[in-house]
């Protein structure tokens, strides 16, 4: 795989100025910040206590008291969406961390060494890629039982080859550059060159991929908890809320609408943020999904 990387040659200040003229970036940034804020606030305050069941208030339509309505146990949906954000963000973020932490060094190493090491690592990548995240999640759940941690592991494992590929493709595009040759002529080792020259130049690429995987992680987590393979009750999660809503669609459609909207908005925000960053820093960068 070859990849063209245009290395941006602008200063931080002008980049920042450009960022705030980029609609996608601003919109994505604001939305992401909002979702994060919602999750953080939920630790200190939610409109209602999500652990308390108030059967007398069950399946109430949205109103001034309950903006998003209540569920079949009378819990406030807005509060549950807020608390659910924590779970989604935590799972997706840690999974991105696993993917980056393992994948980027692997990809950079493969690109630096080349030859058989590269070939072997890439074949290993193919192997992991053959197990879609949901499938590995199913396998992991089959062994260890359902839970948020297992969801993280499953999504994280799937992220590893994604980041390894992006890092490798990016690094391969950097290695033939003359400034790398110059560094080699100056006697720097592959490891030093990777840290000093290669990684800083593919950071943008990784950042963009990071936002994409973050978004995909939220989607995957929602899917897993919808199937009951993710976070377990009573911890509210967006996917689980949708599962509970399914059989009550006719009487309480709001139970399905609002958690779903939360997912859409969160994912949309992250994707916009990623697009924005890519536009600003690397107009020609090719994103991979």
């Amino acid at each position: 795989m070859t990849l063209h990387i245009d290395i941006s040659e602008e200063t931080f200040g002008s980049t920042l100025a450009k960022a705030f003229r980029n609609t996608a970036f601003v919109a994505g940034f604001v939305i992401t910040l909002m979702i994060l804020a919602m999750a953080v606030v939920s630790y200190a305050w939610t409109p209602y206590d999500v652990t308390k069941l108030v059967i007398s208030d069950k399946t109430q339509a949205p109103s001034l008291a309950h903006w998003f309505g209540t569920d079949h146990f009378g819990r406030d949906i807005l509060s549950m969406v807020m608390v659910g954000a924590r779970n989604s963000i935590a799972v997706a973020l840690v999974a991105v961390g696993i993917g980056m932490g393992v994948g980027v060094p692997l990809g950079a190493f493969a690109a630096a060494r080349g030859g058989l090491v590269d070939e072997a690592l890439m074949r290993l990548n193919d192997l992991v890629f053959a197990f879609p995240a949901l499938l590995s999640a199913i396998m992991i759940t089959a062994i260890f039982g359902p839970g948020a941690v297992n969801a993280i592991i499953a999504i994280g494992i799937f992220n590893i080859p994604v980041f390894a590929r992006v890092a490798r493709a990016g690094a391969l595009a950097i290695w033939p550059r003359e400034f790398i040759l110059a560094a080699r002529a100056a006697g720097k080792s592959s490891a030093q060159i990777t840290i000093e020259h290669v990684l800083p130049n593919i950071a943008t690429l990784l950042l963009v991929q990071g936002t994409i995987q973050f978004a995909l992680g939220i989607l995957a987590e929602a899917g897993l908890s919808y199937l009951g393979l993710g976070a377990q009750p009573p911890m509210p999660s967006w996917g689980r809320m949708l599962f509970d809503a399914q059989t009550r669609m006719v009487v309480a459609p709001w139970m399905a609408i609002f958690p779903g909207m939360a997912i859409v908005v969160a994912v949309l925000g992250l994707n916009l943020l990623g697009d924005g960053i890519a536009d600003i820093l690397d107009p020609k960068s090719r994103r991979q999904r």
Binding site: G187, K188, E196, P200
Partner: peptide
Amino acid sequence: VVFQDPYGSFDPRQKVEKLVAEPLH
């Protein structure tokens, strides 16, 4: 060594001081 391409032979993310000093390594 001096290379052909005056644009490609410097890491755009580093300042001149660091780039010119690289061989001091």
